[in-house]
Design a protein around this nucleic acid. Structure first.
Lengths: 334, 334
DNA sequence: ATGAAAGCGCTAACAT
DNA sequence: ATGTTAGCGCTTTCAT
């Protein structure tokens, strides 16, 4: 805690303390080139001495842009967004952009939708990392990209996502390659899960195998994985492998296997999706598909930047190739 | 996506569309009383018709306050912050405050510390939900509270936290009450873990038992729980119960138990801390301590609001009582 | 109950 | 390379 000075210093205070004009200070703040070293040093010294923090409100207002990209998130528990945010940040920070997160569940009341809140912030672009709703887009008039989901095609918004269908095939083919023939899939709600299931079914059929798909309560959380796997194991005891639509659900599958007396991987191979921190836990040592969310985030950032330059570019869909990560939960059938 | 109008509507546009003055629009925006119903309706209609979004930049600049509370977070993987954010939001939103999250790892480069970034936003208060560093506070000149951590006492900042030491006792006494005598504790780095360990040791000694504490690699993640539990089980095979410093570490402990041929809870009782989503997973069905992070968030919000009114109030420390949540991972010793 | 007018602290276009 | 100036879109007295 520093002294409670009567007033916060502003750019004028810094300018006069450094013996220069406000414009010079503004240039130094943005690290612009073409400022003499001496002046720059003087300004920086004054900034530190006065403990000056530029007002982003004033900068946004005057510049008519916030140098901020808004991200709409909805579920903090499925940790895929961490990589997304990282990729976004790595791509954007060097260009002077910040990332602001809006959460539909928080900050309700004040704004009708999280997008409204971001528009009030005058974000320069928006990344939708939820299942997008029509309503969200009514309000958007900046470049937008939908990340991680290909379900709802939004007019004017680019799409960047991990190729969930290819990932579903990859998982399935790993199991088939190991020698499994009786393979089940536990799926859930939402576009990503549906595409993963499609990849599973396609791969199975291409190999002349019959896919067995079960769903929990329609969501994609641990209890859904548990419930779906119980259905699968009970109706088809010959099953030697299960592909779960994500890692959290795979954890539920592992519990169901245990409760039915099946060891993983000896009696049942298990593969997840996401390569979340859960997958690397010693309790699971889960083979999984890495959707490379960092790449998705970076791709979303690039799409946004391009569209900021060229608003009328045709809408693009970029798919990131998923990767297989082999750990200890898959093995050849007994 | 709506029409690409040349310019965004501002408060003047709304005012003239509604046939009133800008001041009236401003009053309606803030839901102020003393505006005639007719005028209010006209303004609201114009807002909708023009798809007007007030500029938060301008509002912050003019009002010299952002109606935003900043939260500094550091690790998205230990999900305790979700409850914190929820409690903060529930308390603050009705009063018109937003919550902005700053993450030290993201948004580096642009601001020296996450606190700098929040100060640039002109937040009206700050919640530190990380291990605070001296450096952070050099820059703060708004009400601040440290949430969830009692380690570093920051001059001028209130503290709101779950009572980790009491929680440690609670966990330990649950095990002792079940009949366990040989009990180990897996701890990690940081203030919260240290207090939980203190609670463990105190409870053990009060019951005339000798505490056995192990540490992983000094962090508080799953591999640390795994490594610590292996140490414990290998050096003291008589152990019938382990208390892990948090749920993620407990998951590591569960893996170590399995790898040493111990079933939970038949051969080893296990209790965690946090009551995270992990604890309710079917694979663990983990008995745990609920730190009631929603209450911590609500308490932090209240502390901030009080200090905004009365900046010179003496610094307070509020402790939230933790609760035991019994699931299936603890049982009487064999 | 409503309106008029003065800033808030910056950026950017222009001038030098 | 540096200084001057005109807003950006609001909130907030102060009038009426």
């Amino acid at each position: 805690m520093t002294q409670e000075t009567g007033k916060r210093p502003n750019i004028y205070d810094v300018a006069s303390a450094a013996g220069v004009s406000k414009s010079l200070v503004s240039l130094v703040l943005r690290g612009a080139p073409g400022v003499s070293a001496a002046r720059r040093a003087a300004v920086e010294e004054a900034i530190v001495r006065l403990n000056y923090r530029p007002s982003r409100a004033a900068a946004t207002l005057a510049g008519n842009r916030s140098r901020t990209i808004g991200v709409v998130l909805d579920d903090y528990r499925n940790l895929w967004f961490v990589g997304l945010l990282g990729g976004l940040h790595d791509e954007l920070a060097p260009l002077g952009f910040r990332v602001a997160v809006a959460d539909p569940s928080f900050n309700a009341h004040l704004d009708r939708t999280p997008v409204d809140g971001l528009m009030s912030l005058r974000v320069d672009g928006i990344v939708i990392a939820t299942e997008p709703t029509e309503e969200m887009f009514a309000a958007v008039d900046v470049p937008a990209v939908v990340a991680g989901n290909r379900d709802l095609v939004v007019p004017g918004a680019d799409i960047v996502a991990n190729d969930d269908e290819a990932g579903g095939r990859l998982a399935t083919e790993h199991l088939i390659g190991l020698g499994h023939r009786e393979i089940g899939h536990v799926t859930g709600g939402g576009g990503a899960a549906r595409l993963r299931a499609q990849g599973f079914e396609a791969a199975m059929r291409e190999h002349g195998l019959s896919p067995d798909v079960a769903q929990g309560h329609g969501l994609t959380m641990e209890p859904d994985g548990y419930a779906g796997a119980l259905k699968l194991l009970d109706r088809n005891p010959a099953l030697t492998a299960i592909f779960a639509a994500n890692d959290v659900m795979a954890m539920g599958v592992a519990a169901a296997a245990r409760d039915r007396g099946r060891r993983v991987p000896e009696d049942l191979s298990l593969i997840g999706y996401d390569n979340s921190p859960l997958a690397s836990a010693n309790l699971l040592r889960l083979t999984t598909i890495d959707g490379r969310n960092g790449e998705v985030g970076a791709g979303a950032a690039k799409a946004l930047l391009e569209r900021m330059k060229e608003p009328d570019l045709p809408v693009q869909t970029k798919l990131v190739d998923p990767e297989l990560v082999v750990r200890g939960s898959t093995a050849p059938p007994a």
